[in-house]
Amino acid sequence: MSDEVLEAPLVLEYPFTRTTGPVVGAFLTGLREGVVLGVKRGDGSVMCPPLEYDPADSSALSEMVEVGQAGEIVTWAWNGAPRPQQPFDRPFAWALVRLDGADTTILHGVLVDDPSEIHTGMRVDIVWRDERVGQVSDIAGFAPATAPAGSEQPPGSGDGVEVVSAAEPVQSVRTPIRIEYNYTPGRGLSAYLRAMKDKRILGDRCPVSGQVFVPPRGVSPIAGMPTSEMVELADTGYVESFNITRVPIRGRDDLHPPYCSAWIVLDGASVGFMGLVTGIEAEDVTIGLRVKALWKPDDELEMSATNILSWVPTGEPDVVIDNFELVGRVDEAAASEASTDEEAES
């Protein structure tokens, strides 16, 4: 197809709320109070940030100890083009920093102007955010140390103590996620959407069974092969079965419950697809009801499935369905035609 690829932005975004459990919660509570906590392992070494379980033997850890607010860069990498949501909005270095009194490293950003200003082994200080809420970004990042190593007593060397006496320990943390995608619907669906703009409904045909699928997906699940041809379908069909939604749904304020969503089997199609049924009380919808597409006004048509606003009764008698369990209809004539074509080709 010579047409350009259909494309649309797709943003997946959600403010996840994570409950922390005691160890992660203690660390985040500490950050809110301006204190950094590690956790002591069985061998006496200290992990910061504190893991809940020992990587060596999987034992549960709980002995929190305070560690220093300065440390040493163990390794670093330059981030010349920061992305939104990262620690700094201008170029910075990512680094693994071993805080004084800890035996493991923490990942964060180090703010220097240029990669020449940072090196492995360099001393850095924590830069705190003014407003802290109990999450890892309460640490804004690190900055080159102002005092030489050893001048600050690492506080984490003592026994485990209750170092944070917060009235309200952190028990959950907000971690919003936002990821942008470029959605492309694929060839079958793209052809369907393009045809929609001309008020045409396309399906595609299985090269083996002759079944017609709508919307077209480019593949026949029956044959496990690409579909062989596009088929134009009527914009009339019948209700195979239906649902009456009696509660409002998010993002569709225009739909007033009760409303009916139904599996519509188009004339000439082998399968049904979901559509809205209007022009009839939801209570009066029947299995077998004949319907036709209600299209958007011509000047509002676009390459979208939303061009069909809903399905409305045609007034014809209901289709008689003999076996309520069978969904969809195999078009026998089309099937035999397709198999004839196959033989002719082979």
Binding site: R18, F27, Q85, I106, L107, H108, V136, T175
Partner: peptide
């Protein structure tokens, strides 16, 4: 908890 929120 500790790393993903920084989006490295």
């Amino acid at each position: 908890y500790y790393v993903a929120p920084l989006w490295p």
